[in-house]
Design a protein around this nucleic acid. Sequence first.
DNA 1: CTCAACTTGTCATACGCATGTCATAAAAGA
DNA 2: TCTTTTATGACATGCGTATGACAAGTTGAG
Lengths: 234, 234
Amino acid sequence: MSRNRILIVDDEPAIREMVAVALELADFDVLEAENAQRGHEIIVDERPDLVLLDWMLPSVTGIELARRLKRDETTNEIPIIMLTAKSEEDNKVQGLDVGADDYITKPFSTRELISRIKAVLRRASSAAAEKAIEVEGLCLDPVSHRISANDEPVDMGPTEYRLLEFFMSHQERAYSRTQLLDQVWGANVYVEDRTIDVHIRRLRKALAPFGFDRFIQTVRGTGYRFSVKAAKAS
Amino acid sequence: MSRNRILIVDDEPAIREMVAVALELADFDVLEAENAQRGHEIIVDERPDLVLLDWMLPSVTGIELARRLKRDETTNEIPIIMLTAKSEEDNKVQGLDVGADDYITKPFSTRELISRIKAVLRRASSAAAEKAIEVEGLCLDPVSHRISANDEPVDMGPTEYRLLEFFMSHQERAYSRTQLLDQVWGANVYVEDRTIDVHIRRLRKALAPFGFDRFIQTVRGTGYRFSVKAAKAS
DNA sequence: CTCAACTTGTCATACGCATGTCATAAAAGA
DNA sequence: TCTTTTATGACATGCGTATGACAAGTTGAG
């Protein structure tokens, strides 16, 4: 698991700095934005794992940004922790209503901040792990442990299932055979690199009747990739 | 039946302690939280059987937490008993409006508390357990403790009954043998994992004459699943 | 109390699918 | 064309599942 990326949106450089240092010590990667607009850009471009959002921001408030994020399909699953300057009841309630996953009142201890962040991330990731992934009719449901294509069940072996699961949760990215081996088979497993080819083939074969084998693309000289886009110009 | 787990959310340690002792004497497992945030985390993570929720809590009030719990699909079935410090009618009414299953006014006797808890639990569990489940002609009636397929009685052992009951109330979901053991046999029971296979077989055998064994599906490398959908593409 | 009928957990064994590897064909670059 | 890389079919092995049998435990009727 790569380190979690956290975006802190706050107009006070001092606060950003303080939080950033604390987060880095706690083994997070930190992104920073000093206002809501910039924050929104970064969220869209970088898709951080969590956003720390100051309540009071110049022009567009944090609450407004939160509302927008939660309204947008592409960002509404990114957890938000609101930072409120004062301990005002109203703020907290409103913040939660807006869809924030938690809030924390300044001043706060970095210890508390970290533990809140971890709690929210834990919740988010377990929720995400149970969520079905669906791409153009190809659907993987981790709960029932089943693949379906246009609601037709698709039959495949356990390894192909895990392979597809990995691919679908890491789309648009090329992986070497070794990487796939580590991720899907697990580290410290001695398996021939070329074995991947065979499993790729089996996965394609299972998806082929529905035409979904086009998602499993060969990246010559490197490995494989799951991509919704066409592999090449036709 | 494992012991019911009860979460007490109250900011006063003295009260928590008192209630906790009383509940443990009454053979409940007790979880504690001192504020709404922590309470919410525990509820999400641990899924207690019932929540005792103080009306007045710092920052996020109990009432607000109750509202959120009842609004969330995943937590709205967990019964809530509100604890109000004063005997204010308004509170009670509002508390019930929010979705609390009962309320109780401080100071209360532990005797009363226990009996209220049991009443609520009884209601909750019977509400959930007394409804017959029917799937495509296969019907499980918890009241008469009977299975019927197209109105024909189906004969099976008690364990197979419980297994089927669990499956039918948790459809479309794959369970490992260990999970099934915990859920159907109960935790802290030492039974061989492979024993599940045998009971699955017996259950299938009982359902086979009606063709309903197709619902009991093997998820290779994982466990079993009850599903109405076909196991594999034909 | 005794016996029969039934349950239930475990084991041994049979079965079948899944997996890893190889040999070879096909394809893509150079 | 030649070389490198990937695709594919076949195959042996091994692992996970299915199945039948059995012994111990339980229940209930006589």
